[in-house]
Design a protein around this nucleic acid. Structure first.
Lengths: 260, 260
DNA sequence: TACGAAAAGTGGTATTGACCACTTGGCGAG
DNA sequence: CTCGCCAAGTGGTCAATACCACTTTTCGTA
């Protein structure tokens, strides 16, 4: 744990005691209160600004921001994602079976095709409304004794960490447009061939091992991705002069209002 | 232009003279060669690492990386996006008309509903294959005398900067799944109701003025979004211990291979 | 020759001190 | 009372220096 990380967490604690819009102590004040150099403070605040917890105003101060709506292109769990929108996340496990892996999934998960695999199909709810259907594939050795109810009322990632000691550190997700199949339509309660997002995600643990492959279908009529864009610097220099003032675009998702 | 930005650009120039995988001079060497402090060097390199131009290896050196496939959730033009994939971008202007604005668009563009608007419909090509159809809406006062051919063989953003002196600094883009309409199917050469991405984008100039509202339909069978994910820090601290080692997920798009 | 320890070089973190640019609020002149 | 200026406080940038952690190379020893 570096001082910078420690500082970040201490400021994070500090933020919890404040309300949105309030200013945190100035950088020079924090230097004294926390006993670290201003550079360290700034590096820690940089992180928190990047993550959307703080907003700096040159010449004025540093303020607590509205909690971000969401950052679906960050490694967040469905539960956290929905909670952040003020909705109650839910989950109904439709099926939990142990199967063999097969060639394609074996490659994705980087395990032997003979390995045993837990396959979980579940419905994700937001305020008891169906939002997405997802199918998880997890090597059985990683989650022995996993049951249906384990997955009902908590984040799978929390469970992984607390019971199995597996900490997620990264992942890759692809996004495609698609339309719902017959099964998906029925489960989600939408007409056949409704537009939807298809997310495919593999996540990686601290150890470097691939933990899961997930295939999710999100209702296109209720889920939308929103990205704040910033220009990029180009290596060939053509547009370099038009360099960014705004940096680090944020990503977030929104729920569409019913009547849009 | 701060020293840090100047340093960044000088390193960027330096990178152009190297090939992928080669090491750039060490930070201490750069300190001397460029005559700035190591802190400044590091800040500049931080930027370039974030943008994917460089890769740091602790104890070893800093290396030039493979140019990123793409970063579609960054403010990049279609032309740049396609070029980066080694494809030849193209554009066919299907229609260019001046109309009045209407209430909904007026709100989006923050102009009077009576303002004149240039509406451009065009087909975007990659290697002469239809990739997307887009409709641009631009207040006419910003781009007087714009013609069809202006838009054919160059980036619209380049044109804006060079001829009209308008520099784009940020934007917002929403992404939804949809299916192609009759017109879109015909123009793109795909069956009716093919899954597609609907992008809606508004871009903002240096002046703070909204420059354009764009609605694009991307073929779902050829265009895919890929995001590298990293965990986030949470303000309520529950999972904070599992903090990220990997930071700053990159986003990129991929073209699907034909036979997938 | 093969191995292992040491040294040299690299990026990673941290401190201290300084100055600049911007915002804000108070005070004085009109 | 109002306006404009100015000073204080804030974040933004930069320098010089030090030490740590890691990688790579070198070189001496077995």
């Amino acid at each position: 744990m570096t001082k910078q990380e420690e500082t970040r967490d201490r400021v994070l604690d500090l933020i919890e005691g404040l309300s949105v819009g309030q200013a945190i102590p100035s950088e020079r004040q924090l230097t004294q209160e926390l006993g670290v150099s201003r550079l360290t403070i700034r590096a820690a605040l940089d992180d928190l600004v990047r993550d959307g917890h703080l907003d700096r105003r040159h010449g004025s101060g540093t303020y607590v921001t509205e909690p971000k709506i969401a950052q679906p292109l960050t490694l967040t769990s469905f539960s956290d994602d929905m909670r952040r929108r003020g909705m109650v996340p839910g989950s109904r496990t439709l099926e939990l079976v142990v199967t063999s892996t097969g060639a394609r999934l074996a490659r994705r998960l980087q395990v032997s095709p003979e390995a045993r695999l837990v396959r979980v199909k579940r419905l994700r709810l937001a305020d008891d409304q169906p939002m997405a259907m997802e199918v998880l594939h997890i090597p059985e050795v990683l989650v022995p004794g996993l049951t249906k109810t384990d997955l009902e009322d908590r984040s799978f990632y929390e469970l992984l960490e607390e019971r199995y000691g597996i900490v997620i550190v990264s992942g890759t997700q692809s996004i495609e447009p698609t339309v719902t199949s017959e099964e998906e339509s029925e489960v989600l309660g939408v007409p056949l061939h409704t537009p939807a997002f298809l997310f495919e995600r593999t996540t990686v643990a601290e150890s470097g091992r691939i933990v899961e492959f997930v295939r999710s279908i999100y209702r296109g009529d209720r889920y939308r991705l929103v990205a704040d864009l910033t220009p990029q610097r180009s290596r060939n220099g053509r547009l370099r002069a038009a360099a960014a003032k705004v940096r680090n675009g944020e990503r977030r998702a929104e729920l569409k209002s019913e009547g849009e």
